[in-house]
Design a protein around this nucleic acid. Structure first.
Lengths: 150, 150
DNA sequence: TTATTTTATTTGATATATCAATTATATTTA
DNA sequence: TAAATATAATTGATATATCAAATAAAATAA
């Protein structure tokens, strides 16, 4: 059961996602935008759901709270985001996307759409569906609360 | 073309790999081993190919040179690895896995085998083959030298 | 209503990722 | 062979990942 690394599916998963990430980040930079994919993802999720807490944000972009704190900090520093006290819950903050953030959000969206198209140029709809189904099962099988089981 | 994040295949790829990584790392820790998955991967690759350079090592585990330098440093500090000057090429080092390293390599291999089995418990052989094929195409489409093209 | 618990976020420490610059040595070329 | 170039590895800076501990406020229980 001592397989070679490159025969292992999770190794290939890593390879694919890393390759795609580098490719995508490179193209964003080349197009002249000053934002990382992770920062963009956080902005994107905030736009989809503006009243989200940082904790929910974290779990939805698969990051932990500490990372979100730091990414938000950088986005504020770059003037993509504004952070204000929450009117009711004083533990929380209200994160508001700034005009500069909306700009970068939509501009980079175009780059990302092109990236995806290139990355998947010879992958069929059906294959993508199958891939999604398998990925979802992997997430189910490995999710936090599953860890204790057995 | 403004899809929701969770409909996007690369987002799901990230989700799956992160979920698996956390699951796997948790189980390694729980089993009492003091090694990260990345450190283990480097050891594993070194065992497969003992005369590899750090640069080749880097590209085979999808890391950059700087990361490898630091991971090797940690492995040496933990006495899993020994680093000596190369007899012929004085720019290089010879990395030798120590007994302690061989131990951890094989013990953790068992944990990892179990992890994989659990993570893929309801995924068929055929699905894995298809997955591999799609992943390989993604890597091809996004590989470094492809970036300049178009 | 005070005490306890939970929730939201931050901070510190360490590991890894990425880029650029640096150092040292080896190889190639003029 | 000297100069130019390529290769191997390290270092520094910054971003992100993860864990644990800390802080503050809110919600719940006694």
């Amino acid at each position: 059961m001592e397989e070679k690394l490159n025969e292992i599916i999770f190794y290939q998963l890593e390879a694919a996602i890393k390759s795609y990430r580098q490719f995508a980040q490179r193209n964003i930079q080349t197009a002249g935008y000053d934002i990382t994919i992770d920062q963009w993802l956080v902005l994107k999720k905030l736009k989809e759901d503006p009243s989200i807490t940082q904790q929910q944000l974290a779990s939805q972009v698969f990051k932990d709270f500490a990372s979100i704190t730091r990414i938000v900090e950088l986005l504020v520093r770059k003037k993509y985001l504004q952070r204000n006290n929450h009117p009711v819950d004083r533990r929380r903050f209200v994160l508001t996307i700034q005009p500069k953030g909306l700009d970068v959000l939509s501009s980079v969206q175009n780059v990302i759409n092109k990236n995806r198209k290139k990355a998947l140029k010879d992958v069929s709809e059906k294959e993508i569906k199958n891939l999604q189904s398998v990925l979802q099962r992997i997430v189910m099988n490995t999710a936090q609360d599953q860890a204790a089981a057995e």
